[in-house]
């Protein structure tokens, strides 16, 4: 028996909106730790890892570890039917072939339940080691989204370079080139407007903008994004999910031909 009650149901809607274009089908794993997911995109270039810790739920009952195979676009369709302020409860029996999403309006005057068919998904679980990064950039998530969107009108790839000057995002395409430099800046009115660059060593890596743009679908989840870079490792683009967890996108770099 599984029963997870999330008061901030809107968070789950935002999580699904940030996943559904990257991944078609995925197993949600429920354990005492929390509600998590690890999935790759269909071309095995990017990987997403979601964790919503059990403490973040108002009620968290998970009698035994359970893996729920879901089609993410169908799950997003169902969650779209919940109000942004609704309380969302996810329920499933141990041997269930379906999952129930219950939506309660904040003043309890409307209660809806949606039942979605589960699916068997054969997915490969990858072991992600803890890594030391050469550079970690924290910046406003909306700024990062704007940069990725702007650069993708000019080129297909972005070179992200971190030096002591700051972080540089560069692209080139048929019409020309573009470089955007963001400097370390903590003299801002609000902490979420800061750009914080921690650099052990300079690093420069090339990534497909199509994937970066897909990751920025998570922008509504968090004011800040963390971009962790190391030579010859996938970049990690992380958004916090309130105080209860995170969504991390890993993207393999491109190498010179």
């Amino acid at each position: 028996m599984l029963e997870l009650r999330l008061v901030q149901g809107g968070l789950l809607k935002k999580v699904l909106d940030s996943l559904k274009d990257l991944v078609n089908d995925a197993n949600f794993d429920c354990s005492a730790t929390g509600f998590s997911l690890q999935a790759m995109d269909s071309s095995h270039v990017a990987l997403v890892a979601l964790l919503l810790r059990s403490e973040g739920f108002e009620h968290y009952r998970c009698d035994r570890n359970l893996s729920l195979g879901m089609n993410l676009s169908n799950m997003a369709k169902m969650l779209k039917c919940a109000g942004n302020d609704d309380i969302v409860t996810i329920k499933a029996d141990d041997a269930a072939d379906s999952v129930t999403f219950m939506f309660e309006s904040p003043n309890q005057d409307k209660i809806a339940d949606f039942d979605m068919k589960l699916m068997d998904i054969d997915s490969e679980h990858l072991g992600i080691p803890e890594a030391e990064f050469q550079a970690i950039v924290r910046m406003p998530s909306a700024e990062f989204a704007r940069i990725c969107k702007d650069l993708s009108t000019i080129g297909d790839t972005v070179v992200i370079s971190v030096t002591k000057e700051g972080v540089k995002f560069s692209t080139r395409g048929d019409i020309g080139t573009a470089n955007i430099v963001c400097r370390h800046n903590t003299s801002v009115d609000k902490p979420e407007e800061a750009t914080i660059i921690e650099m052990e060593e300079t690093v420069s890596l090339t990534f497909a903008l199509r994937y970066m743009n897909s990751f920025t679908k998570a922008t509504p989840l968090a004011n800040q994004v963390t971009i962790s870079l190391s030579s010859d490792l996938p970049v990690v683009v992380e958004y916090k999910v309130a105080e209860m967890g995170h969504i991390r996108f890993y993207l393999a770099p491109k190498i010179e031909e």
Binding site: M40, H44, L126, D156, T157, A252, K254, E256
Partner: peptide, 14 residues
């Protein structure tokens, strides 16, 4: 531009 690497090259299967 460039060769796209596969994410599974970096992480072990568990």
């Amino acid at each position: 531009r460039g060769i796209q690497r596969n994410i599974t090259e970096f992480f072990r299967s568990t």
